[in-house]
Structures are given as C-alpha cells and as structure tokens.
Design a protein around this nucleic acid. Structure first.
Lengths: 179, 179
DNA sequence: GTCTATATCAAGATAGAC
DNA sequence: GTCTATCTTGATATAGAC
C-alpha cells in the first residue's frame, strides 16, 4: 500500500485515533499499524522508532495549535495583551479530543525527557510572548502559569472545576490580559 | 530475605532511588527488585503489579507532602490565606529529588489514568482549601492554577524561568495570598 | 523507495516449589 | 513470604519481495 508522503500523515492520523479511542495505554505500534492499514515494518519505515512516531505527533500538534493561534490573533485588535488573549481563546475553543492526544504525549514525554524538547521551546517562546505584551513581569508570569496550570490539569484530567467555574476562571484570565 | 512489613517500605525506597538515579524510563521491576535486594517474584508479592507499585509511591509522596504542609501551617498565623501560604512555602522549600519522583508518577499517571485518582482527590481538596481561604473566587482560582502551573512545569522540566525570576514569581504568589 | 514477514530481546506477570 | 522458571506481549531489527 504505497501512499508516498501521505502515508506519514495517515499514520499520524491513525495514532491519534488509537489514543482517542483506547487511551494512551493502548498506543502500541501494532495498533497504530493496523489502524493505518500498514504492517509494523511499514510503520517503522516511516517512523524508525516509537519515539519518532511520538515526536511526529507532538510536532504536528504544536504546529496546528500555532496556526490556529496566529489566525485568531489576526482577528484581534493590536492592543496590549492581544497575543496572550489569542492563546487563551484558541485553547478555550479547541475540542476535548486534543486533550487525550496531549495526555499521551505527556506520558511519553515524562518517560523520555528529550521528547519534550519541542514543547519546551514552544513553552519558552510563549512565556517570552507573555512578557513582551506590555504587562508587568508579575502580571505576565501569574497569567502565564495560571493558564498553563489549567492546561496541564486538563491534560491529566485533574481539573476539579465545574463548567461554570471554568468559564468564570477563563473570563478572569482574559480580564487580566488588560493592563 | 524476609523483612515483613518493612519490605514494603524498603521496596518503595528502592523504587525512588532507581528513579532518582536513572530516570523514569529505567523504573523496571527488575531494577527495583535488584536495588531492594529481592527477586522479581518477591517484589510482586508485596505489589502485585507495577501499577500497584506506582500507586504505593504516589500515596506515600502525597502523604509526606501533606504532613510537611500541616506542620508548616501550624507555624503560621491564622490569617486569611495562611493555608495557601503553607502549601506554596512547603513546595518552594522541598528538594529537587522529589520532582524526579513526581515526574515518574506523572508519566505513569498519563499512561494509566486511574492511577492518578488519589492525586485527583488531593488536587480537589487543595482547591477547596484555596476557595475557603477568604479570597474571592477569582483570586483563589488564579492563585491555585498559577501555583500548579509552576508545579507541573517543574515536574516536566519545562519551566523556562531563571532562578531569580522564579523567586520573584513565588514572592508574587505569596503576596497574592493577602486579601 | 516502500513494504511484508519474521526474528530477537526486554519487561511484566503467573505458577508453583520451598 | 520469597524464590525459580516460564509465559506473553510489545518494541525493535533484519531480510528480502515488489
């Protein structure tokens, strides 16, 4: 089943589907290969190791979020905190399936730290963006970590907030983007 | 090597030592058994599965942190935000070795969600404590998630803060505990 | 270049002896 | 309560077909 460059994308789709349907614990090469319609060997031709597959998933996830964030930012006024606002809104509007994928990558990342390198760089860039927003260091840092506290809680299904509390919290974060 | 009830503690110590020395990726039953001076079979008598072992590690970690937090809180004045202050200070003063252990448990938890159940309950109790502190909902929620944003960043070695920035951020969090 | 089939190895788990 | 031996599964490597 030769699909050229598209095979990569098909395999990444399959990997995400496996995680969403069966959870991070069932993300095995065999399951992904079956879902993608290739053999394990075929999968390993495109991604030489499971770690490479996970890296592929993480890279694509970050890239897609960045794209959505950029588009959102273009629709906002060029006021102080607009970039931060775009980040928060993009996350708030994203669908819950992504969290399962994020959870799988978190599991992999804690297992093999170097896998998180792209996420680490993205994290740093985002902090710098918060810092450049015109807010004070204190305000920007609190806003940044409060936002990521929510993100990580979501990724680990740890958040104890009721839906309306969650909404109120997100509104408060947005309010804090104004100097 | 019959050590009765102490064997459990010895095995948990060994598991922590393996994680601290070799990282989460090398936490295998064989490595823990060797470090504890028992066979794999002997280890599995005390912890019937790897998941049980991880749960044992997590329970003990939470219990120890709670103990330290309680002692810290007793030394503080009974002012609004004192409980929150105790939580933040206890974390700020804890040593970095615990983060490696926490990282391993995070990895395991993302892999097997039910393992995080005790952490989930602890998380909820802590949020309720923040809410009962006399601060507004908004202030308490921002403080809570900002604190845990830092904690999770540490656990994943993701935090891009320089040491002095980190100190400034922690001071800001403590300042926010005052109504 | 792309893939299948098969082999190898490590790790978690089980059964039963002591 | 602990050990040895064994089973199973998943990740990874290789040989070679198309």
């Amino acid at each position: 089943m030769a699909r050229g460059a598209n095979a990569r994308e098909a395999i990444l789709d399959a990997a995400e589907a496996v995680v969403i349907e069966s959870g991070a614990g069932h993300l095995t090469l065999a399951a992904v290969a079956a879902k993608a319609g290739v053999s394990k060997g075929g999968l390993l031709y495109h991604f030489p190791s499971k770690e490479d597959l996970l890296k592929g998933m993480l890279d694509r996830l970050i890239q897609r979020f960045d794209q959505a964030r950029k588009e959102k930012a273009e629709g906002l006024k060029r006021e102080a905190g607009a970039q931060i606002k775009a980040t928060i809104l993009t996350y708030a509007e994203g669908d819950a399936r992504k969290e399962k994928i994020g959870s799988a990558l978190l599991a992999a990342g804690a297992h093999a730290p170097k896998l998180l390198q792209p996420a680490r760089e993205d994290f740093r860039r985002r902090l710098e963006e918060f810092m450049r927003s015109g807010l004070s260091f204190q305000r920007a840092a609190v806003l940044f970590f409060a936002f990521y506290g929510l993100v990580f809680s979501d990724l680990l299904s740890l958040s104890p907030l009721k839906p309306q509390e969650r909404q109120a919290f997100l509104r408060e974060l947005l309010a804090l983007t104004k100097p």
